[in-house]
Simulated assay, not measured.
Amino acid sequence: MSTMHVLYYDENYDYAGEEDIDSDTLPPNSTDVVPDPSIISPRFDLKKNIWIEAATDEYKESIKPEPPAPNEVEALQKQVADIYYLLAMGGS
């Protein structure tokens, strides 16, 4: 008997956890196929024996982090650039 890493999926084939087990056979609703790390919401495609993306585009957009606020130096650089632009355009 050997140790293997298995990934479980639920009745909808959505990822449901993983663990190392001491067995030579896969338990029901599991695979030893590891999903691509870029997949946000893995769903197992039993026919193709691969993990696919289950997250919708709307969900992916909703979890994108907000861009960081500019730090003080960047804010000052923008102000200076704006002043130079105004001066170049005639000062108003």
Score class of each variant (00 low, 15 high):
52 I>T: 14
85 Y>W: 11
41 S>T: 12
79 Q>D: 14
77 Q>P: 01
31 T>Q: 01
33 V>E: 13
36 D>T: 04
88 A>D: 07
80 V>W: 07
91 G>K: 08
51 W>K: 01
75 A>G: 01
38 S>W: 11
37 P>Y: 12
32 D>Y: 02
64 K>V: 05
33 V>Y: 03
48 K>N: 14
90 G>F: 11
45 D>M: 10
69 A>F: 11
62 S>I: 09
87 L>R: 06
45 D>V: 06
61 E>C: 03
72 E>L: 14
30 S>A: 12
67 P>C: 06
88 A>M: 09
12 N>S: 09
31 T>L: 07
1 M>A: 15
13 Y>D: 08
40 I>C: 13
5 H>I: 06
91 G>E: 07
39 I>P: 00
40 I>S: 07
8 Y>K: 06
28 P>F: 12
14 D>Y: 13
77 Q>N: 14
84 Y>C: 06
37 P>K: 11
9 Y>E: 01
24 D>Y: 08
84 Y>M: 08
4 M>V: 08
31 T>A: 03
68 P>Q: 09
18 E>N: 10
6 V>Y: 02
17 G>W: 05
53 E>T: 10
36 D>H: 14
91 G>A: 05
28 P>M: 04
60 K>Y: 04
4 M>R: 12
31 T>K: 01
84 Y>K: 15
86 L>C: 06
78 K>C: 00
50 I>W: 01
60 K>G: 09
7 L>R: 08
54 A>Q: 13
39 I>R: 00
59 Y>E: 14
40 I>G: 00
2 S>H: 10
24 D>F: 07
3 T>K: 10
21 I>P: 00
14 D>F: 15
2 S>Y: 09
90 G>V: 06
